[in-house]
C-alpha cells in the first residue's frame, strides 16, 4: 500500500504492508519492520526495533492529525487525483499577501480603487477575537479593486483587494 501525506508543503511517501501486528515500511529508501498495537482507536504503541513510541492519530474529513512527542502535526492525505506532487509544492502564489489571514469583520478600509500605495502602507484592518489584523501593502503599486467595505464579514483566505502587477 503506497501512501502520500502532505505536511507544510512537503510530500512524504511511504509504503506499508501489514502482516498481523507486524508492519513492513519502506521510507526514504530504507526498510523497517515495526510492531504496532492499538490501545484504543487511534492510540498506537509502536515498537521500532526495541524503541517504543506512543502516538495518537485522529482524522477529520480532510485532515489527519498525529500527536507525537508532545506535538500535534496536521497532514493531508493526498488522494489519487492524477496530480503530481514532487517535493515542495509551489511557492506562495503571488496574491497570497492580500488574502485575509483570519475570519472576522472588516473595520476599516484605508485605500480606494486607483490609490497608489507604498510598501508597508496599511490598506485594510480586520478585527477578529477582539484583536486587529492589518493588511499591509507588501510592495508599492496601484490598488485595482477593493473587495470589502467596513462592516463586512470576511472569511479566512478571501482576497481583500487586488493590486496592480509588479512592474
Amino acid at each position: 500500500m503506497f501512501l502520500k501525506y502532505e505536511h507544510n508543503g512537503n510530500v512524504y511517501r511511504v509504503e506499508v504492508e501489514r502482516d498481523g501486528d507486524k508492519y513492513y515500511l519502506t521510507y526514504e529508501g530504507d526498510m523497517y519492520t515495526v510492531i504496532a498495537t492499538e490501545i484504543e482507536r487511534g492510540y498506537l504503541k509502536i515498537d521500532l526495533g526495541g524503541r517504543e513510541i506512543k502516538c495518537v492519530v485522529s482524522e477529520t474529513e480532510d485532515s489527519k492529525y498525529i500527536f507525537f512527542n508532545g506535538e500535534v502535526f496536521q497532514v493531508s492525505p493526498i488522494a489519487l487525483t492524477g496530480r503530481k506532487f514532487d517535493g515542495k509544492i509551489g511557492t506562495a502564489d503571488k496574491d497570497s499577501d492580500f488574502k485575509s489571514p483570519i475570519s472576522g469583520k472588516v473595520v476599516k478600509v484605508e485605500v480606494e480603487e486607483g490609490d497608489e500605495v507604498s510598501a508597508g502602507d496599511v490598506m485594510m484592518v480586520i478585527e477578529a477575537m477582539k484583536m486587529e489584523y492589518l493588511i499591509k501593502a507588501p510592495r508599492g503599486g496601484v490598488v485595482e479593486k477593493v473587495n470589502f467595505s467596513p462592516g463586512d464579514q470576511i472569511e479566512i483566505g478571501e482576497e481583500t483587494l487586488v493590486m496592480s502587477e509588479e512592474e
Binding site: N8, Y12, L44, I46, I53, P77
Partner: peptide, 15 residues
C-alpha cells in the same frame, strides 16, 4: 518537517 515516527504511525494507522 514531519518526524519519521509520525510518518510511520500514520502509515500504520492507514494500514
Amino acid at each position: 518537517e514531519l518526524p519519521k515516527e509520525a510518518v510511520f504511525a500514520l502509515a500504520v494507522y492507514d494500514a
